[in-house]
Simulated assay, not measured.
Amino acid sequence: MTESRKLRIGFIPLVDAAALIVAVDKGFTAEEGLNVELVREVSWSNVRDKLNIGLFDAAHLLAPVAIASSLGLGHVKVPIITAFGLGLNGNAITVSPELFNALKDAADGDLADPMVSARALARVVMNRKARGEEPLTFGMTFPYSTHNYQLRFWMAAGGVDPDQDVRLIVLPPPYMVESLANKHVDAFCVGAPWNSVAVDLGIGRILHFVSEILERAAEKVLAVRARWAEDNPDMFHKLVRAHGRAAAFVEDEHNHHEVARLLSAPGRIAVEPEVIRRTLDGRLKISPDGTYRSSDRYLMVGRKGAARPDPAQAAWLYAQMVRWGQALMSAEGLAEAKAAFRPDLYDKIIGGSPDLPPSEPADRVGAFTGPAFDPDNIVAHLDGWKIRRR
């Protein structure tokens, strides 16, 4: 019998909401006795605020927002936890044709190498300054977002100061494409399917999958208020269990056609199923000329331990908040950040192992460059960077 009280769960129209959408639309939540209403939102601030004040019982949420909310950064302090990760990776950096050509002209090597492209960006930025031109503008989805940190990480690796040399502006994911078309931005970092939509329209070119910059990057989580999980343990466990089933369904390539159809529906993501299918298959068209690029790491929903929350990922995100001046470094802050990611609850509800497959990076992040990362000693990692806020 279905629970009489309806659960309201907010989401943004992105492919990394797949496990959430499938859990509801395939009936996995109903089979657990849950009555769930999915509420499509436009902006991450809406999702965060409605979760924090209790208008949503749970949410498809940016992983860093769970940490920022728990620490009281940028908003009221509301402890948020996750026992289920909705996806690792899944973002891409898309640039205008004009910027791509400028990067290509400035590149010393293959632009598919993120260090080559980052250094090319530094040359483009320097040349624009010398000519007295306006700074390049990059769109990202939220100040406390993986998109913000991934753009900054990549830029700074090539010598570009993201706060001094370019403009970073916040745009809701569905508005990225229109902003690129109207030349309000020169590039953006966003999740699928919006990079592919820009390519299909001929107005953008995918420069990098973020999995080329970070091998494992916690992207979205199934987030709940810590107090809600304590007050509704049975409901919480059922919700996580249903997501475990949904992630397994999404990861089965035989189901990709059906998953793409479910996600493409009005009220969900509302784009052509074929665009979503590319994301699920990890084979994306990166250029309007029909060039494709494939990666088995583009978006990981459940495989390779992706659904099990990893406190090392929380530590990396907290390190970015400290690096870019959003948070002060403290042992207490690091501990609180890690506490938002609850692998113990995942193991209790679904069962799991803290060990990653041998193919996964030893530090559980796998950045393409930079000082060594130790989730228990992020100060040493931060001290290795020349470009940071202090």
Rank of each mutant, 00 (worst) to 15 (best):
Met1Cys: 08
Ile9Ser: 09
Pro13Met: 14
Leu14Asn: 12
Leu20Arg: 04
Val22Cys: 14
Asp25Gln: 12
Lys26Val: 07
Ala30Asp: 15
Asn35Leu: 14
Asn52Tyr: 01
Asn52Ala: 14
Ile53Thr: 04
Ile53Ala: 07
Gly54Met: 07
Phe56Gly: 02
Leu61Trp: 00
Leu61Pro: 00
Ala68Trp: 05
Leu71Tyr: 05
His75Trp: 13
Pro79Asp: 08
Ile80Pro: 04
Phe84Gly: 01
Gly87Gln: 08
Ser96His: 12
Leu99Gln: 11
Phe100Gln: 02
Ala106Ile: 03
Ala106Gly: 02
Gly109Leu: 01
Ser117Thr: 00
Ala120Lys: 14
Ala122Tyr: 13
Val125Thr: 12
Arg128Cys: 00
Glu133His: 11
Leu136Ile: 08
Gly139Lys: 04
Thr141Met: 10
His147Met: 04
Tyr149Val: 04
Gly159Asp: 10
Asp161Trp: 03
Asp165Ala: 03
Met176Val: 02
Val177Ile: 08
Ser179Gln: 13
Ser179Thr: 10
His184Met: 14
Ala192Ser: 09
Ile206Gly: 09
Ser211Gly: 07
Ala217Trp: 03
Ala218Ile: 02
Val221His: 01
Val224Cys: 00
Ala229Phe: 06
Glu230Thr: 07
Asp234His: 15
Met235Pro: 02
Phe236Gly: 02
Lys238Gly: 15
Ala242Asn: 15
Ala242Cys: 14
Gly244Arg: 10
Ala247Val: 11
Ala247Ile: 01
Ala260Phe: 00
Ala265Ile: 05
Pro266Gly: 07
Ala270Glu: 11
Val275Cys: 08
Arg277Met: 12
Gly290Asn: 03
Arg293Pro: 05
Ser294Asp: 13
Val301Arg: 00
Ala315His: 11
Tyr318His: 09
Met321Ile: 07
Arg323Ile: 12
Trp324Ser: 06
Gly325Lys: 07
Leu334Val: 03
Glu336Lys: 06
Ala340Asn: 15
Phe341His: 12
Asp344Trp: 02
Asp347Met: 05
Asp347Trp: 04
Asp347Gln: 13
Lys348Phe: 07
Ile349Phe: 14
Leu356His: 10
Glu360Asp: 04
Glu360Arg: 06
Thr369Leu: 15
Gly370Arg: 12
Ala372Cys: 05
Phe373Tyr: 07
Asp374Ser: 07
Pro375Lys: 10
Leu382Ile: 05
Gly384Leu: 13
